[in-house]
Amino acid sequence: MSVLTDRLPTRSRAINPEPAGPLATRPFGLDALANVAPVAIPSQTFTVDPASQLSVIDGEVCLDTPAHMKNTICNTESDGRDSIGGVDEDQNDD
């Protein structure tokens, strides 16, 4: 039995407002940070279709809407650039 059984990994979509600290105490690993971009307030709403239980963006079932699926937000890529790729909590997952 794992000692970590009370852990429940989730994916946070929250954006941290706190600014970076001084370089002297900035962890070396954060030097790899790329594609830094401001995060705007999402203009789209995500819901679940009550009948099919499929993902819905602005009232349209995602899988049935090519315009959505072409967008990186639904392309399910593993590059961390879309809203699906939130910040992992207790999990390393791409």
Binding site: P19, F28, A37, V39
Partner: peptide, 30 residues
């Protein structure tokens, strides 16, 4: 990184991809 690649701070969002470490950074105190 040991965890996920997304990092947020200062209301920004970025990714922590794999990167090379050149010799001048091998003993970076950070």
């Amino acid at each position: 990184v040991l965890g996920g690649i997304v990092h947020t701070e200062a209301n920004t969002r970025g990714q922590l991809y794999t990167r090379r470490v050149p010799p001048e950074q091998w003993n970076d105190p950070r």
